[in-house]
Structure formats: structure tokens, C-alpha cells
Nucleic acid binder design. Structure first.
Length: 577
RNA sequence: GCCCACAUAGCUCAGGAGGUCAGAGCGCAUCCUUGGUAAGGAUGAGGUCGCCGGUUCAACUCCGGCUGUGGGCUCCA
């Protein structure tokens, strides 16, 4: 994380919250009649929600910034007053949102803050005066439901940020710019990975040849790694009869995310999850404790109806493939099995270059199935497994799914952003709904616990994260084109072809740039395509059976024996460096 | 789905008070150049200005609807 100039988290919050008050004052002065929502500090800045008398757009932000600068120039004190709720009710009689907040405050006394002409209901604390704000910037404007509830009015939210000096602000803006530069949607198109076609439907991904190579490389790795860890791979169809989804409860609980169709008079569903197919396979015969835990794995493509407004590149789509598995295991083996899954997940993430995580444990929600004892048992298994790994985790109280608690692991990329990755979920619902069982050593039927887990999550989302993490400059083992051969003149083409043949023989992905162009241009384009190695071939190289090696971002590395290079390269690829 | 904005050539983007305003760069094609480490030169092809309606003598330009995209909200792998 870059140095932001704040001593403590509290200082930062106070500073930014104060900036949001200044912004609110500016908006109120520019747009009289505006009703105020709330204006907290957030991760990277602050926002304030307004109910404006007229719509505004990004074009209005500079005006608001000017007004804010003026208010800061006045250096008004932030003054705190403690008043009774009655007084507050009359003070904010024209501020409906504030009145609503007041209603929820238990204390009889509330505090308000005033700077200049502006008064706000606020717990504080604040900076001494507006003049303490040295560097700020309004970032964007967006709609946001009052109190995050889509049934309530939509307010206009303005996002901004502020820092004690100019420098960290500039740095922050640079970071935003950098994030835009590595946006997977932009790189995905530029590097020929994937596209989404308006005429084919939103949220549906078409992988182009290079993207397909990347995806296949990941898929192959996943299949091998699952096999190594005792998973059995299966393949299940994309559609299934609706009745199956009624039994599971999906038609009831998941209906708004499902695609339905009709075939010869019976209802079918485009599968939104892979679990039911795996349950059918589990139930295909009587299961014994001897084959437990039974781990069924599938690179399963699922389709979920997502509201149009939430779609976003590869990160939020309507059709995606999960590296999904369902583990049927004995209740007493739950923690052991979860420990293995966490091991697996962390191994895989570090293989892809992610070393930092945020871990969340979601507990029992208000609406749940199963008994509280079962929940407690599962939660303690999840906790136990996390603790075995010495993982720091946060508890998301009540955020579990209705059918069981879960662990979510988010990966941090090079820019410090968190991406949803592995989730491990215990399911109490489906074993009941489908009455699944196994025969124990005692000869009696027992109900297994079901673990629903993904390691990378969805390939789409993971690839999106990967593209941004590496900024499209993939390690050699993942790069769609690993080697670009650049012959200097036409007469070098025969030798170039020979080199290509040698590389192809080692299953290395190679291209020759045989265009009639100068090498300066070919090198430039090779670098822009982020190809790991360029091999320049001219008279000298053809003569000596060498290549002039150029490494992405490192420039010319000089003449190297072809055999030596191939050996080094093969090692780099197998080690996944 | 909701709020705001946007939609011009394959890509990035100009454009105007409704009327020689269909434009640039990159890319693509053809030709010249055979060149030693991040852009050689010339010529050319490409667009019913997202779609459907309306206003007008005239709409890429104004208005409405639809579709899609972006930033968010809610929801999520």
C-alpha cells in the first residue's frame, strides 16, 4: 500500500468525513433545496448521498470542487453542539432523511456539527476547521438507494477523496489510472482474449484463440491437480428437468436467477449450479463408507440470470464455468476434509502468483435450514480448519447461505485490490432433500455431509483477475504466445522455420513474424503483445545456430545457443516460474 | 432492475446552430524498401454516424422509445 500521509486509520476517517461535510455544504449552496442523506468516509475516500432538486452529472463536479475550495479558504471552524432530540427534530424538520436517522437514535441527546452556514446531524469527530483540508478531489457520481434498499428512493451519490498533501492524492489518482490501464476488458480485447457480442447477448463470453489457450492451460492444470488430490472428474448436461430443481428447493429459493425453457411440454432449467448432477451420480448406487469422502469434480458451465445492470466484463456474466466439486463425507471427517480443501485452494492461488488473501467466515443467517447444533458443528469445523492453517479471518455474522455456513477467500492483486476466489460451503439442505446416504461400518445408513467448493471460483472471473494482476504480461507457462521469432530479412526465414520446428517439437507456443517490416517495428509490437521472449534471427545467428534473445521488459540479452535456450525455457515452463 | 452518463470505420477518438461535416491516427490491402533491438515510405479499401419512431423542406446533429456499454446501488462465482 502506498504511503497516504495519515498517522492512523482514525485520522484518515476524520479527515475524509470532514471533507464530505465540506462537499455537502458546497452542494447545498449550489443546489438549494437539496436533501441530505449520509456522508461517511470509506476505504479510499468518502461519499455523500443527496436528494437533489435537479439531476446533475460529472460535468458539475468541477463547480462543486470550486465551491469546496472556497469553503476551505474560509477556514470555518467545525463546531460541535449537543442538543436534545426534540431540538434536533425541529432543526431538521425539512430534512426527511435526517429525521429518519434521528428516530433510530436511542439517546435523548444527539450531536450536531456546524461549519459556516452548514449544519449536519453527526456523531463526529471532525477536524478543527475546514482549512485543514489540503488536497481533495471529487471522483465520480452514481445512484445509490437510500439505506441500500432498492425499494427506497434513489439518491445521488458523489464520491471523492482527500489527503493531507498533494502528493498522496496524485499517487492515488495515478493508481486509479493504472487500474484503468490494466482493465481486463480493455486488455482482453487488445490482446485478443475474448469478446462479448451485443448481437449474441450481454454477459456471454466468446473466447478468441489466445483467450482459449489461456483458459485451456488453466483447465488442464485444474484437472491434473484435482486428480492428484483424489477427486473424480465428471461431466453433466447443461439442462435438466425442472422437477429436479423443485426437489432441491432451487425453484423456490433461486428462481429469479434461473433460465427456464420448455421441451415437449415439460419444463427444463438451464443449470445454475452443478450440485444436482453430482448428487444424481452419487445416488446412482448404494455408497459405502469405504469410498468416502467421495469427491466429484467438474469444470461445470452454469447459467444464471443476472440483472443487466450488474454485468461487468468477465467478472459478472450470465454464463460461466466453475471449477466445482461436491464432497460427500462423514460428519466426523468434516474438518479434516475442509483442511484439505483450504490447502488445495492456497496451493493453487500461490501457483498463479497470488500470495495475499482476505478470509471470511459466514455464519448462520436468520433464515436457515437444519438444526442449530448442526450449524455449530459445521462452523466449528470451518473455524478449526482455518486455525490449522493459521489464517487470519473475519467473521461475517449471519452472512451464510440458508443451507450452510461458508468460507470465502479473496485474493489481493498487485494493486492491492481484493477478488473473490475460493469458497467452501457446507450444505445441510441437499442431503435432506435428496435423502442421500451411505452404509457405515455398522451396516446402517448414515447421512453424509456435503461440501460444495470451488478453488478458483469461476474461470471467467479468475481469468479477469489474472489479466489485471499480470496486466496481460503472463508468466511464460500461461502466455498464449510464449515465443515470437523475428527474422531480420527474408533470407533468414529458413533458419527461423527450423527454430520454430524445434520449439514446436517441445510443445512451445511459438509464432514467426515474417512480415516485410523492420525489426524495430516487430520488436515494438512483440513487446506490446507482452510476449515473454523474442528471438531475433539474422546472419550471425543463422551462421552460429544461435538466437539473439530478448526478454519482455528486459531488452536485448545477447546471443544464446538455441539448445541452451530451449532447455532453460522448458525448465521455466515446467516449474511455472 | 434502479440513478446518471455515453453510443461516429475493426480499435482509439475528432466533429457542428439541423443544409459540401462523413474526418484523423492506429489497424487492414497493394506496391516500394531486405532493414540488427520499441513506429521506413507511398497508394487504397472501409461507416444508412447503435436500432425504431417523431419534429422538419432537410436529422449523424433536436425529441421519444428500445438495445448495448460505463460509473455506482441492490444482488453475486
Amino acid at each position: 500500500m502506498p504511503e497516504d500521509g495519515f498517522e492512523t486509520r482514525e485520522d484518515k476517517d476524520i479527515y475524509r468525513h470532514s471533507t464530505s461535510h465540506v462537499m455537502a455544504q458546497a452542494v447545498l449552496e449550489l443546489f438549494p433545496g437539496t436533501k441530505l442523506g449520509i456522508g461517511p468516509s470509506i476505504e479510499d475516500g468518502f461519499y455523500y448521498d443527496f436528494d437533489l432538486p435537479v439531476p446533475i452529472s460529472e460535468d458539475d463536479l468541477p463547480r462543486i470542487e470550486e465551491k469546496m475550495a472556497e469553503i476551505i479558504g474560509q477556514d470555518s471552524l467545525f463546531e460541535k453542539y449537543s442538543i436534545t432530540k426534540d431540538e434536533a427534530n425541529s432543526l431538521f424538520k425539512d430534512a426527511p432523511y435526517k429525521l429518519e436517522l434521528l428516530k433510530e437514535i436511542e439517546d435523548d441527546k444527539v450531536t450536531i456539527y456546524r461549519q459556516g452556514s452548514f449544519v449536519d446531524l453527526c456523531r463526529g469527530p471532525h477536524l478543527p476547521s475546514t482549512g485543514h483540508i489540503k488536497a481533495f478531489k471529487l471522483i465520480s457520481i452514481a445512484g445509490a438507494y437510500w439505506r441500500g434498499d432498492e425499494k427506497r428512493p434513489m439518491l445521488t451519490r458523489i464520491y471523492g477523496t482527500s489527503f493531507p498533501t498533494r502528493e498522496p492524492l496524485e499517487e492515488y489518482l495515478h493508481r486509479l489510472e493504472e487500474a484503468r490501464r490494466r482493465d481486463h476488458r480493455r486488455l482482453g480485447r487488445e490482446l485478443g482474449f475474448f469478446n462479448i457480442y451485443e448481437e449474441a447477448g450481454p454477459g456471454l463470453i466468446y473466447y478468441h484463440p489466445y483467450g482459449t489457450i489461456l483458459r485451456e492451460e488453466i483447465s488442464k492444470l485444474l484437472k491434473r491437480e484435482h486428480q492428484k488430490r483424489g477427486y473424480l472428474e465428471v461431466v453433466t448436461p447443461h439442462i435438466a428437468k425442472m422437477d429436479l430443481w423443485k426437489t432441491s428447493g432451487h425453484c423456490e429459493f433461486y428462481r429469479e436467477n434461473m433460465f427456464f425453457m420448455e421441451v415437449e411440454g415439460s419444463g427444463y432449467v438451464l443449470k445454475p449450479m452443478n450440485c444436482l448432477g453430482h448428487i444424481l451420480i452419487y445416488q446412482s448406487r448404494t455408497r459405502s463408507y469405504r469410498e468416502m469422502p467421495l469427491r466429484l469434480f467438474e469444470l461445470g458451465t452454469v447459467y444464471r440470470y443476472e440483472r443487466s445492470g450488474v454485468l461487468h466484463g468477465l467478472l459478472r456474466v450470465r454464463g460461466f464455468t466453475q471449477d466445482d466439486a461436491h464432497i460427500f463425507c462423514q460428519r466426523e471427517k468434516l474438518q479434516e476434509e475442509i483442511t484439505k480443501v483450504i490447502d488445495f485452494a492456497l496451493d493453487m492461488l500461490s501457483l498463479f502468483g497470488f500470495k495475499e488473501y482476505e478470509v471470511y467466515l459466514s455464519t448462520r443467517p436468520e433464515k436457515f435450514v437444519g438444526t442449530p447444533q448442526k450449524w455449530d458443528e459445521a462452523i466449528s469445523s470451518l473455524k478449526g480448519a482455518l486455525e490449522e492453517h493459521d489464517l487470519l479471518y473475519a467473521i461475517d455474522e449471519g452472512e451464510g447461505v440458508f443451507y450452510g455456513p461458508k468460507i470465502d477467500i479473496k485474493l489481493k492483486d498487485t494493486l492491492g485490490r481484493a477478488w473473490q476466489g475460493p469458497t467452501i460451503q457446507v450444505d445441510f439442505n441437499l442431503p435432506d432433500q435428496f435423502d442421500i446416504s451411505y452404509i457405515g461400518p455398522d451396516g446402517a445408513r448414515h447421512q453424509p455431509v456435503m461440501i460444495h467448493r470451488v478453488v478458483l471460483g469461476s474461470l471467467e472471473r479468475f481469468i479477469g483477475a489474472l489479466i489485471e494482476h499480470f496486466s496481460g504480461a503472463f508468466p511464460t507457462w500461461l502466455a498464449p504466445v510464449q515465443i515470437l521469432i523475428v527474422p531480420i530479412a527474408d533470407r533468414h526465414l529458413p533458419y527461423a522455420k527450423r527454430v520454430e520446428g524445434d520449439l514446436l517439437g517441445r510443445e512451445i507456443r511459438v509464432e514467426i513474424d515474417s512480415r516485410n517490416e523492420k525489426i524495430g517495428l516487430k520488436i515494438r509490437e512483440g513487446e506490446l503483445r507482452k510476449i515473454p521472449y523474442l528471438l531475433i534471427i539474422g546472419d550471425k545467428e543463422a551462421q552460429n545456430q544461435t538466437i539473439a534473445l530478448r526478454k519482455r521488459g528486459k531488452g536485448d540479452l545477447g546471443e544464446v545457443k538455441l539448445a541452451d535456450f530451449i532447455e532453460k525455457l522448458t525448465r521455466e515452463i515446467t516449474k511455472r516460474d
